[in-house]
């Protein structure tokens, strides 16, 4: 009897264990999936620019792009709600600030006209004047990469149908935003200049010295970008404006404002000058951007031409 009972107990225990075992996560599947992930990582790393995963990225992008654009459009009215609750005093302060900066800018523009005319004469000599004017395709930011993913990229709602291609310069009304990495039909992925992977050729406005501007990997404006000048002897001045050095064929168009120099460090060991550039663009509040496309290119939406007309 006892033996039988014990036998029964063992039976039960075994079946119980079996059931438990069947619910344990299978290690073989874990190992298989981890190996699959590592294979993907290896493929993507070794592939570099022409990675075998680019087609997959494109297909997933075609599917997710319209969904992101729809959700962003639905969310937009709600993100504007805080601006309804601003008092008259706030608005009056803002008007005063804007009038002040407007007056300052007008003064600068009046001088700039002369400078620009002179520049156009020089450019006419090099027959590059008409090439310099590129058109802007307007677009809105519909999705932002999270900081957990360690990359600072955004999706905009204009793609190859709007005339956008890889390596085009993206700006907004403050200055340089970044460059286009890849496009789908209706969306494009933009690498922001604050990404640690991003390097932009920069030129210091006053001295015309050239260097490289690297992202610092922070959304805060004061964290800034890193500027290293090629010429070790020249010291950039605080408050100087940095613009892109670029070329008409390269990823960044020339002459786009990046930011102002806020700090200068000189490293004795490396014998180079390092400066912190505070970008003009507020990357935590990106919305409307423009993509610089060659003048006269076909697009599915109104394009802003170099002379300000809408086409």
């Amino acid at each position: 009897m006892g033996a039988l009972g014990g036998h029964d107990g063992r039976e039960r225990r075994w079946t119980g264990l079996d059931r438990l075992e069947s619910r344990r996560p299978p290690r073989s599947l874990l190992v298989a999936l981890v190996l699959a992930s590592i294979t993907l990582i290896t493929l993507d790393v070794s592939g570099g620019g022409s990675s075998p995963l680019e087609p997959a990225r494109r297909v997933v992008g075609e599917a997710f792009g319209p969904a992101e654009a729809t959700v962003a459009a639905a969310v937009r009215p709600f993100t504007a709600v805080p601006t309804w609750f601003r008092s008259k005093g706030d608005l009056a302060d803002q008007v005063r600030d804007l009038e002040a900066s407007n007056a300052e800018l007008r003064g600068r523009v009046e001088l700039a006209g002369f400078e620009r005319n002179r520049l156009e004469q020089y450019d006419g000599l090099t027959t590059a004047a008409e090439d310099l004017g590129s058109a802007l395709v307007p677009a809105r930011v519909v999705a932002l990469g999270s900081r957990q993913s360690q990359s600072f990229t955004v999706t905009i709602d204009a793609g190859s149908e709007a005339g956008i291609g890889p390596d085009m310069t993206v700006v907004n009304n403050d200055g340089l935003v970044g460059r286009v990495l890849r496009v789908t039909r209706s969306t494009a992925t933009v690498l922001l200049v604050i990404d640690p992977d991003s390097t932009v050729g920069g030129r210091v406005g006053s001295s015309m010295e050239i260097g490289f501007v690297t992202g610092s990997g922070s959304l805060r404006q004061e964290a800034g970008l890193d500027l290293r000048l090629l010429d070790d002897a020249s010291v950039p001045a605080r408050g100087d404006t940095v613009v892109t050095w670029g070329s008409t064929t390269g990823p960044y168009a020339p002459g786009v404002p990046i930011g102002t120099i806020t700090e200068v460090y000189s490293s004795l060991r490396e014998a180079t000058q390092r400066a912190v550039v505070e970008p003009f663009v507020d990357f935590s509040a990106l919305d409307v951007v423009g993509v610089m496309v060659p003048s006269g290119s076909a697009s599915d939406r109104a394009v802003i031409e170099a002379d300000g007309t809408l086409r």
Binding site: L30, L33, V34, A36, S37, I38, T39, L40, I41, L43, D44, V45, S51, L53, A56, R57, V60, G61, F64, G65, E68, A143, L144, G145, S149, Q150, S151, T153, V154, T155, L181, T184, T187, T189, L191, D197
Partner: peptide, 23 residues
């Protein structure tokens, strides 16, 4: 994880989120 790796704003090496979320 694979969707996180490939969907538009992502630009990191694909497979990293897939690995993390599987574990």
């Amino acid at each position: 994880g694979l969707a996180l790796d490939l969907a538009p704003p992502a630009d990191h090496v694909a497979g990293r989120w897939a690995l993390a979320l599987t574990v």
